[in-house]
Design a protein around this nucleic acid. Structure first.
Length: 925
RNA sequence: GGGCGAUUAGCUCAGCUGGUUAGAGCGCUACAUUCACAUUGUAGAGGUCAUAGGUUCAAGUCCUAUAUCGCCCACCA
């Protein structure tokens, strides 16, 4: 049977097999259980158009670690999965697809187009879900949600109506961010500013009274001059004082515009005179309102100029810019062009430069929602990890602007807004002013107008911002607002669970794991929505992880071609390797710089675990201990009372529990890399490199059998959240083999539902750890000496004497002498309590021990002397430092006495060591 | 313009609340293959902790500047 275990771990043979087993046995599902505390994570829903990238891999690995850990800790752990309909992104993808057939969405019409999107969604929308499964994500898939599910959409409508009724949603004409390519309004967050290399154009606007005189204005977007309706100067500006109130002739259009005074104008910028285009700039818009200027829109939705642009009508905005500059230049009205760096908003979906555009949109009033959300973080009800993100959050929240939520696209939640044609006509005629412009906001389409009774009613064409549904994710996924238990059945039919109970039980959720880019879009808004609609925070902790970058620090993106595909890594190295490598290099909240080679570490670790386990399985007695008195799996505590354990076993057990404690602490503090590295170091460098090597010759002893088995078994459980597949594979083999005939042992079940090992404080033995540490140092020194003295590795006729004046150390060394001989490949070892120098020997000095090696062959005495000399020098310089320190009155007075004691002790040891070294040196003649 | 982060070994990075000799992975050097594992083992080399001040008995760690790189936010037309 053992022979069947291959020498190399093959992830492909285990991963799909175990994932299927977990799913088939419903191990991911969670439901309210009054016996247990809940632990809930809602997944940041990936876009349906998404394909798994490293960011997802990192994000979801972290969540899976948390969920698996808490599940093993005995919590009812729910990881709620789902996808986001991603309005603009998805619409763009499908538009591209139909473009291949030579079609535009307008050719299909709204209804048909949306049907196409649904078809697309059914076909490709589960790609990302399948990929998350490859990653080992233990989501409760029976609960999978989609932001356009029927029930979810009800929540969206409900929220819109409630906010409208509270006067927190309004409609109005404002300058918004317009993407001429997507042809929709965007929120401020969706139009991030990027630096652009542009120009500052100085244009001359002639005075009406005196066409030979000009006011020169500076602009970065000269094409908007066609919509200018004023020129503004600062009232304090002496240069223009005389001109305020005068009239200018707007070139090319020959419109008369006034010079107005406004403090908004910066005296130092440009010429101090600014052209005012109220329909195309937010500042100008404000001035336009204030000074009652005319609003002239010169652009169409697609970014071409409209009929107000006269002869430039039909040109693209950037094409028009060039032509207009040409024309101005011809008329001598272009003063100069200066290079100028500016920043402009870019569409976050298609990267087109945003046009500030006057249009009628729907907005959410944010200040009232922000207030409690600010408090929640300020009072520490919600904590950010790392804490610095709280500042970012607070800063944004304090300066929050109203949220533009209407989008002029087709894919999304249509606004629950209806218009009565009758009323709006009446209203334009100003006959019935109390009909709210015929606007009806309702949960379902009304049969007739509540104002006038007309049945001529139509729904608003626009859809809502995707984030207007995502911000409800922590509770809408539990079928809020249904609360009467009569809600729609869960997908996959989990019987006995009623959604309202779920919401009560699992909300507020525990931890949200996400990336910094999404704090404003999603995290902040979820907090506002949770507090507004649930009257409670949506989550307690927010863990913000870093961005995955390439080795040069660039964000990984398709267009840069610097992507490392997680699926390729899974294919090549295995999922566990991917997860472990990612986690081990991700310091809390720091960005991750990745190259493919990084994943070798995880693969190698998996292989190490595999082979160590293979070794243990090969050497593990079946079922019962050889003596028949000690069942292999008897609880350690009971066992220890009966039998005294060797130092080695006490040491490794203590090390294991110390490690476990460290890992737990790290996980509770969201220090995943620390946890992973602690585990790695323990298993590889302590358990494998030392422990297994030490016990190898005596591996069949009862103690060694029990301890080796117990540590592997417990280690696998601790490893499981990090490397779920390999831990399960080995666990299954181990449990089967280790099972005792008495049947008192854990039944053969999945590792993922086992309990996390309990820290047995009484087994942590610092003294044993220290003694062992020193013994290991001695072995290392002997090995080192062999190399230094060029003793061939095969040579075994080596004699060593270890002399120490410490009685306890002597006892420990005596107990370990067999192992020391073995690991240092010695033929004879003596432990003495006093060092006596003799001829033909070579001695190394440790803190309180001499190691003397006897050789009859040829050796390089000079080389050895040199080494000793170096060591003496190093020790003496250290002694100097310490002496200085210990003669410093300030130090003695102010440092805590323990520290002083430690330093004194250290100095004593150093002096001792120097003494011994000198003795050894003298012994070399 | 405001804010945040980074600067530690050849490379990529850890180092939590100041306190023994600053760590890891990769790479490098030497040696090792009847050994669970060469995706390995043993041993080793390699660091003025960006710079300058300061606080402290004590600074990689705290404070203040400076430099370089990166990110986020902002209505300089």
């Amino acid at each position: 049977m053992i022979d069947e275990i291959p020498k190399q771990y093959n992830p492909k043979e285990t991963e799909d097999k175990w994932y299927k087993a977990w799913e088939d046995n419903n191990l991911f599902s969670a439901k309210p259980n009054p016996q247990k505390k809940p632990f809930t994570i809602v997944i940041p829903p990936p876009n349906v158009t998404g394909i798994l990238h490293m960011g997802h891999a990192l994000n979801n690995t972290i969540q899976d670690i948390l969920i698996r850990y808490q599940r093993m800790k005995g919590k009812e752990a729910l990881w709620m999965p789902g996808t986001d309909h991603a309005g603009i992104a998805t619409q763009n993808v499908v538009e591209k697809a139909i473009a291949k057939e030579g079609l535009k969405r307008q050719d299909l019409g709204r209804q048909n187009f949306i049907e196409r999107v649904w078809v697309w969604k059914e076909q490709y929308g589960s790609t990302i879900i399948r990929q998350l499964k490859k990653l080992g994500a233990s989501c409760d898939w029976q609960r999978e949600r989609f932001t356009m599910d029927e029930e979810y959409s009800k929540a969206v409508v409900e929220v819109f109506v409630r906010l409208y009724e509270k006067n927190l949603i309004y409609r109005g004409s404002y300058i918004i961010n317009w993407c001429p390519r997507c042809q929709t309004a965007l929120s401020d967050e969706e139009a991030p500013h990027k630096e652009l290399q542009g120009n500052l154009y100085y244009l001359k606007y002639p005075l009406k009274d005196n066409p030979d005189e000009y006011v020169i204005v500076a602009t970065t977007r000269p094409e908007t001059m066609l919509g200018d309706t004023a020129v503004a100067v600062n009232p304090k500006d002496k240069r223009y004082k005389e001109l305020i109130g005068k009239t200018l002739i707007l070139p090319l259009v020959n419109r008369e515009i006034k010079i107005i005074a406004d403090t908004l104008v910066d005296l130092k910028f440009g010429t101090g005179a600014v052209k005012v285009t109220p329909a195309h700039d937010p500042n100008d818009y404000a001035m336009g309102k204030k000074h009652k200027l005319e609003f002239i829109n010169v652009m169409r939705a697609n970014g071409t100029l409209n009929q107000n642009a006269g002869e430039y009508s039909g040109m693209d905005r950037f094409e028009a810019r060039e032509v207009i500059l040409e024309d101005l230049k011809e008329k001598g009205l272009l003063e100069k062009i200066e290079p100028h760096n500016l920043s402009a908003g870019h569409c976050y979906r298609c990267h087109t430069i945003i046009e500030p555009y006057l249009s009628k949109q729907w907005f959410v009033k944010m200040k009232p929602l922000a207030k409690p959300a600010l408090e929640a973080v300020k009072k520490g009800k919600i904590k950010f990890y790392p804490t610095r993100w709280a500042k970012v959050y607070l800063n944004w929240m304090e300066n929050i602007q109203d949220w533009c939520i209407s989008r002029q696209i087709w894919w999304g939640h249509r606004l629950p807004v209806y218009y009565c044609r009758e009323c709006s006509e009446q209203n334009t005629k100003n006959l019935t002013p109390n009909t709210k412009d015929g606007v009806i906001v309702a949960r379902t389409k009304p049969d007739k107008c509540p104002y006038c009774g007309s049945i001529d009613i139509y729904q608003d064409e626009d859809v809502l911002d995707t984030w207007f549904s995502s911000w409800l994710w922590p509770f809408a996924t539990f079928y809020w607002p249904e609360t009467n238990g009569q809600s729609p059945p869960l997908r996959g039919q989990v019987s006995g669970t009623v959604p309202s109970e779920d919401l009560k039980y699992f909300y507020p959720t525990s931890t949200l794991v996400t990336a910094p880019e999404i704090i404003f879009f999603w995290v902040a808004r979820m907090i506002m929505a949770g507090l507004e609609f649930m009257k409670e925070i949506p989550f307690k902790d927010v863990y913000i992880h870093g961005t995955v970058r390439d080795v040069e620090g660039k964000k990984m993106s398709k267009s840069l071609g610097n992507i490392i595909d997680p699926l390729e890594i899974i294919n090549e190295y295995g999922t566990d390797a991917l997860r472990f490598s990612l986690i081990s290099i991700t310091a809390q909240g720091q960005d991750v710089f990745l190259s493919k080679e990084r994943f070798e570490q995880g693969r190698n670790f998996a292989n190490k675990i595999w082979n160590a386990s293979r070794f243990i399985l090969m050497n593990l007695e079946q079922g019962q201990s050889p003596s028949g008195t000690v069942p292999v799996l008897t609880d350690l505590c009971v066992f220890f009372k009966k039998e005294g354990l060797s130092l080695v076993n006490r040491w490794i057990l203590s090390r294991f529990y110390s490690t476990l404690r460290e890992v737990e602490k790290n996980l509770e503090n969201y220090q995943f890399n620390e946890a992973a590295n602690t585990l790695y170091g323990f298993f590889w460098h302590e358990f494998c490199d030392w422990y297994l090597e030490i016990i190898k010759p005596d591996i069949k002893s009862v103690h060694n059998q029990v301890v080796m088995y117990k540590i592997l078994e417990k280690f696998l459980r601790v490893l499981h959240p990090f490397m779920p597949f390999i831990s399960e594979e080995i666990w299954q083999r181990l449990i089967e083999q280790g099972q005792s005939p008495s049947g008192t042992v854990p039944v053969k079940t999945s590792i993922m539902i086992q309990l996390w090992p309990h820290i047995q404080e009484n087994i942590i033995d610092h003294k044993a750890e220290k003694t062992m540490q020193e013994a290991l140092e001695i072995i290392t020194s002997i090995r080192n000496m062999r190399l230094e003295l060029d003793i061939p590795p095969q040579a075994q006729n080596i004699e060593v004497k270890i002399s120490t004046s410490s009685k306890s150390k002597k006892a420990a060394l005596e107990a370990l002498s067999g192992q020391i001989k073995n690991l240092s490949r010695l033929n004879k070892l003596e432990i003495l309590d006093e060092y006596r120098r003799g001829l033909g020997e070579f001695t190394s000095v440790l803190k309180d021990a001499h190691i003397t090696i006897f050789l009859s062959g040829v050796i390089d005495i000079e080389k050895h002397k040199e080494k000793i000399n170096q060591k003496i020098q190093r020790t003496e310089s250290e002694i100097n430092l310490k002496e200085k320190m210990l003669s410093d009155k300030n130090f003695l007075q102010r440092a805590p006495s323990e520290i002083v004691e430690i330093e004194r002790e250290k100095l004593k040891n150093l002096k001792d060591e120097a003494q011994k070294l000198k003795g050894v040196k003298d012994g070399l003649r």
